[in-house]
Design a protein around this nucleic acid. Structure first.
Lengths: 236, 236
DNA sequence: TGGACGCTGCTTACATACAAGACCTGCCAC
DNA sequence: GTGGCAGGTCTTGTATGTAAGCAGCGTCCA
């Protein structure tokens, strides 16, 4: 594939596919044929297959034995599960925030928020910054390693969110909330920080729910029905 | 392998290996050669390899490229992470317990507790009942699907616990706590149920910590050091 | 017209062959 | 004795071959 030899092909394939699924470049229902993906990515079926298995475990892909693999539908139930998990972890972490905050992490969070204010922020950049911000919050309480669990949940949330949010219009509100959370943390008002974080996470979820009501056709029950074969173009 | 053809070989291999790791039948540091496992299980390397990848994602196995795969060390840091995650999820679920409880689930939980009281309870049976009990509690709040996340965490906790707990001596206390939790839930005192559940989970964790202090050699930092090749017999 | 049946082409599941790197061991030079 | 190098053998990573199952479509028959 031409990438540095320090990374396995499987890692590259996995991350490539995951990114394309999360950005909806590979939309829900898209067919993910091992052969086609292998050819498109210039590798054999093995790393592709292993990546699909991992994505299946994550719930982003459904593998139907002997039939095909498909990008999973955006399922409202799964999105709600993800929201519950994320909220539980991030709020619980706040209970363990120490008296004296790690100045490095605080500096990183402040710098992050600066960038969230930059004009011309595109949606991909915002999602990346948002992710780093919430990860930083977890690290403040010494629970940074729980982030990987949140990431798995966050994937479903972001995918649902993207369905209705293709520009950064209205993102400013979330940036404001990030500031409020960090300010509360720094000032030592953990209780207020908790409330701010909770309402922030809920606001994101409400945003998703609003999208779902406005465009229910984008969401679909993941009820095990097999998508029509090759119903959606696979590779761009 | 002889199992019913309705289940894939990979599922069988994965579950077999996972069980052996969790029960310490495959102890921390044990070598997991793809070739040897494939021969021992009567399948090819493919399903074995895919299982190892999944177990690696779960943190129960470490795969060193071109060197070997090994059962991961019981790492105190990872155990603490698991405890944090589990506590966060189970406590958050209690906030969503509805006024009227699902009678089927309640009946199931009561029956479960009956069995926990049975004399001659062995450790494996207790772990299974404990697992079903906590899963049931999650279902009461409609968050049963979050159980899979807790399971991943619980694996690390159980493994640590088994290191010091090889009989059910002292398990009675945990059974009592289960009763207290369920009684509080049924009586509608969610706040008390929360407190009981929290102290229950903490007690289990303290139990692990006590084991760690008593037998620190059982725990080891998972610092990336490669175990000596074939240092521990692989298959029984 | 409608239903059943078989063929064809696709898919994943599994098995195996090959490649490439890491470790250990033993020999050899000093 | 000791350092270093080479080779053999292990490992996982990747590629490819084989098997088996499902779907869709066309055909044939009633």
């Amino acid at each position: 594939m031409g990438q540095a030899s320090t990374r396995s092909n499987r890692s590259v394939v996995y991350e490539t596919l995951r990114r394309k699924v999360l950005t909806l470049e590979l939309p829900p229902g898209a067919s993910l044929s091992e052969n086609e993906l292998a050819a498109a990515l210039g590798v054999s079926r093995t790393p592709v297959r292993e990546s699909l298995i991992l994505l299946g475990e994550e719930g982003l892909v459904r593998v139907f034995p002997k039939v095909g693999s498909f990008v999973s539908r955006v399922d409202a139930e799964r999105v709600a599960d993800a929201q519950f998990l994320r909220e539980a972890v991030e709020l619980a972490a706040f209970d363990d925030i120490p008296e004296t905050l790690d100045p490095d992490v605080i500096a990183e969070l402040r710098a992050n928020l600066e960038q969230q204010r930059e004009p011309g922020l595109d949606i991909e950049r915002f999602f990346a910054l948002d992710e780093a911000f919430h990860h930083g919050l977890l690290r403040l309480s010494g629970h940074g390693r729980a982030w990987s669990t949140v990431v798995a949940a966050k994937g479903h949330l972001d995918r649902a969110r993207r369905l209705g949010l293709h520009e950064t219009n209205g993102v400013g509100r979330f940036v404001d909330e990030h500031h409020a959370i960090l300010d509360a943390v720094v000032s030592g008002d953990i209780s207020s920080a908790r409330d701010s974080l909770r309402s922030h996470l809920r606001a994101v979820f409400d945003d998703i729910e609003k999208t779902r009501r406005r465009s229910p056709e984008l969401f679909a029950a993941d009820d095990g029905t097999v998508p029509v074969r090759r119903s959606i173009a696979v590779w761009e």
